[in-house]
Amino acid sequence: MARREPIGPLDYTRRLWLRLWLLAVAVFLYAPIVILVVFSFNDSKRNIVWQGFTTDYYVKAAANASLIEAFTNSLVIALVSTVISTIVGALMALALWRFRFPGKPGLDGAVALPIVIPEICMGVALLVFFNRVGVSAAFGWPFSLLPIIIGHVAFSFPFVCVVVRARMAGFDRSLEEASKDLGASEWQTFWNVTVPFMKPGLIAGGLLAMTLSLDDFVITFFTAGPGTLTFPVQVYSMVRFGATPEVNAASTILIVVTVILTVIALRLQRPDKEAAKLA
């Protein structure tokens, strides 16, 4: 009776070779990260062969003031640039979705540009720009982070714009008309009908912006002033000196923090889905 159902012609996921392929790709994607985390506990300076378990390097990393500063800075940058990118990107998406105006194809193309051009071009352009304009260093922290935040917003708000616009493409304009027909003002309609529909797009876009900011190295590398410590740049200089367990420990902490932030973000998204099911 427990005869296994034969594999259907389109049950590709049940085919052995494809499962092995998936497994191989998963190993490819995860093995390096797992090894990195495991070796952050390795009791060896050269960090090549496993010598024994220790948490020394976490203690060391925690005592490393510049690492802590870099860490704080990177999180501040990620949070601030996420908020700004989400707002700016969503507004731009609404403008492009809702209005007809002269020069629209031009603006459309310009918004897509930061997504497609090589990061390094944008990085060096911002480097030169802030060098010439000279925003901030004089005001000290947190203004020293301003160039980095500006750069992060510049490359992540177009992504938010794309995500939110895709969401709005599925919006039925007659819902707005219905709201107005029932007596709501323009503003009430926007707030009670348009924004709730947009919300999953906003969350997805915000999540993407945060991911991009935390993932970024190039823009940060070029926009960080000489006195500004950020996590990727700090780790970069440590790596250049050689791979030590301390780098592994610091990386592991960043991985853990990112995963926690993302889980929180996903949790925030969930009640929405429940509501959608009820509706």
């Binding site: 190295f217 780790v235 960043l254 990112t258």
Partner: peptide, 8 residues
């Protein structure tokens, strides 16, 4: 893996 910095 995207949520891990590219440098790491």
């Amino acid at each position: 893996p995207f949520w891990t910095n590219i440098l790491i």
